[in-house]
Nucleic acid binder design. Structure first.
Lengths: 356, 356
DNA sequence: ATAGCTAACGAAATCGTTTTCGTAAACATA
DNA sequence: TATGTTTACGAAAACGATTTCGTTAGCTAT
């Protein structure tokens, strides 16, 4: 009802007989103000209910305490966890987080980053859209000394902060695991190869086959557009209709892997006995599908947290240029039933025993 | 590298021999500037690469073109879809979205809304934390004429914008569906009863039982703290160990419902024949679990979109007070295998036929 | 012709902080 | 004593857009 007047540093200045400059400095812990004065001022600020006007500060500094995010879509498990991690770290440091979705379109990523730039963000965290192959739109940030952190889907060339997992090793381990389960013909559901994550996962797959003396067959490597459920279903159908179908699948994501499990079950193909399957991401669906999907877990929230911290550090240190620094996080191979042939064998023996 | 000077309305004014006032008005389509001039100015602005400084405008207006969100956690299917819808609508209107997570703690919701208030948001979209029972922290917004939209989890009392689904009817329909499937003893996984959504779902359940001549038994209504997987598992175990166990479950969310399915399967209890189960939300896991979970679908993204639009309208209309306006969206009952006894019966007959 | 009106624009204050130069006092040094 | 050096603070100009009052010119009605 009654519109309360917001109190400003001028009000504090008048009240305490200091100049606004001193108030400002005291509130920001500037060293040239004595500890005593700082305390006095902070106490008064607290008492009088002073609240900093971030817009004014932002205008003056040409920078707002805000971290911008550009991602494909929020409503995917990996992305929402990533954001969750970013938000938590940012808020603890008094930063806001503003998000924008590209929907995997280059055009949207372009306009979103422009809008974020106009919002005078302190830093940008990006997971590239599927379509992006030109990175000029990030130069405006880098040129201005605004840190850009690429996370997960990163550009190969650009010098900047990067937070990633070791996709190559993860792909290698996942494939090796299938080989150890006795698979001889392992198919791969590959994502768009210009995105580092999918390219590297595939490389890991290829090298694992080679190093274990298995042939790399083109007909077993399927390139997906979106790694969607529907795409996975169709691809699995094609693969299993081959004269010599695969006995294992390493999918670059869980959605497609789950669709393969479900398709296989519907066709009476036994998972993992006839077809061992492993996915990537450890989405919630992977532990719900039956048999539960083996997968590679991705520390999404942690990646978000680290990305945010890179920006906070950069801002604190007041670097004038973006520094090139790559952080590589560990993944974890999670073995569930969809690839665990030993366990499946044991179970089928047990279930046959009562009959004998 | 070269720090380009941002051009301002002053630069435009100098270039075109107008005053900054005119430039500002022209860019905002103020009526007192002639169409010709507006065009000239807009063209020049485009050409010279002018970009509005939202911070300066925000400072002057004491309001930034930003929508604040306060929710429990981002990384849940419903919430991420909600945000996705908000973000899309907001961005189309040139608004930014800043999010904050309460983690279902009242304390966090309090400090987050304070921070959002300090950010001079144009409007706030809230889905209440589980703990919240005091709504004073929203008064600062309402008193200032800043619109507050409550979505999904809304307060019963406060006069404000609300965007909800008809939880009562949904709960009633879900329960009625189980009754129609022949269930006689239907259990309910209920959420915290001070949150409208859970209270209303339960009411729908109770009334459906009553109106169909079934007794409402206290031992079959289980109150959950978080409706988590683990909680669901334990609760299902207890229920099924009763001397007279239930033959149906209506769960207030999918997570708990899925845990019930998985527990039942592990115990050899047939779903839906021995135990028909229906959930709420239509999370991705519900169509992946086997048998697939019947559930109530929640138009999450749409709710986000509408919430955002309420704020945009309010801002455009320049209302000085928050208006009380409730939007109720339709839900959809999605029948899958976990409650479809007719289909299950048919299947079991078919699978027996070959033998005869 | 004069008052009254409208259309189209301008001057300058304003929003609340920050920061660049200062200055003044107190103290140390040669 | 004269000269630096800190320490602790202040004046005032930014930051860029908006908006409250204007003003001026041209038109209409009487």
């Amino acid at each position: 009802m009654s519109i309360k007047k917001e109190i400003t540093i001028y009000d504090l200045a008048k009240e305490l007989n200091y100049s606004p400059s001193t108030i400002s400095r005291a509130l920001n812990d500037h060293k040239s103000i004595s500890k005593k004065t700082v305390q006095r001022i902070k106490n008064a600020a607290e008492e009088m209910g002073y609240r900093p006007n971030t817009l004014a500060a932002g205008l003056r500094n040409n920078k707002s305490k805000t971290i911008g995010i550009s991602i494909s879509r929020i409503n995917r498990p990996f992305m929402s966890s990533l954001i969750s991690g970013i938000e938590e770290a940012a808020r603890n440091a008094g930063y806001n987080v503003i998000i924008s979705q590209s929907d995997d379109k280059y055009k949207n990523e372009l306009s979103n980053t422009k809008a974020l730039y106009d919002s005078r963000i302190s830093g940008l965290i990006v997971s590239l859209s599927m379509e992006t192959s030109d990175y000029k739109h990030f130069n405006q940030f880098i040129d201005q000394g605004i840190p850009v952190v690429f996370v997960d889907r990163v550009p190969a060339s650009l010098n900047s902060y990067k937070v990633v997992i070791d996709n190559y090793s993860a792909g290698y381990s996942a494939t090796k695991h299938l080989i150890e389960q006795g698979c001889k013909r392992i198919a791969h559901f590959a994502g768009a190869q210009h995105r580092n994550v999918y390219e590297e996962r595939k490389k890991g797959y290829v090298d694992a086959l080679k190093e274990h003396g298995l042939p790399v067959e083109k007909e077993l490597i399927k390139y997906f557009k979106t790694l969607s459920f529907e795409e996975g279903r169709k691809t699995t159908a094609k693969l299993m209709a081959l004269p010599n179908p695969p006995d294992g699948i390493f999918s670059a994501n869980d959605t497609a892997a789950v669709s393969a499990i479900i398709y296989a079950k519907s066709m009476g193909i036994k998972v993992p006995e006839d077809l061992a399957i492993i996915g990537f991401n450890d989405d919630p669906i992977s532990s719900i599908v039956d048999p539960a999907l083996s997968t590679v877990s991705h520390p999404a929230a942690k990646m978000g947290e680290i990305s945010a911290k890179r920006i906070l550090e950069h801002s604190r240190a007041n670097y004038d240029k973006t520094i090139s620094e790559v952080t590589i996080l560990n993944t974890e191979l999670i073995i569930r039933d969809s690839s665990n042939r030993a366990k499946a064998l044991l179970k089928s023996k047990k279930s046959r025993q009562p009959k004998t």
